[in-house]
């Protein structure tokens, strides 16, 4: 399942998408995120039949990710995103 967290408003669309078929909940992405946007939880809240941990965007960050992810997204010379790079399964994607 592609789980998208975030929002869209007049200024654009800001979503982080986690591919729950690829994510194994290892948590490598959590530690490298300077904005504490991500967390590992024990069960996928969107799929009661999936077993095992999963990464989600913290609930209180859903509507703030444009700001909280901002520090990894300088306007010029954008380096690879730490969370995307850290994931051994390439399960994370950003929409902007």
């Amino acid at each position: 399942m592609l789980a998208s967290y975030g929002y869209s408003d007049g200024s654009g669309a800001y979503f982080i998408t986690v591919d729950t078929d690829k994510c194994d909940g290892c948590g490598e992405c959590v530690g490298v995120c300077p904005g504490q946007v991500l967390e590992v939880i024990d069960e996928d809240p969107n799929d009661p039949f999936r077993d095992g941990p999963i990464v989600v965007v913290r609930k209180h960050k859903h509507n703030k990710i444009k700001d909280d992810c901002g520090r990894c997204k300088p306007a010029s010379c954008r380096p690879p995103l730490p969370c995307v790079e850290a994931c051994p399964n390439r399960a994370i994607a950003h929409s902007w």
Binding site: M1, L2, S4, G6, Y7, S8, D9, H62, N63
Partner: peptide
């Protein structure tokens, strides 16, 4: 009925 892809907008 299993979700394959979703997004929710609850910003406002």
């Amino acid at each position: 009925g299993k979700v394959t892809n979703f997004l929710m907008n609850d910003k406002c």
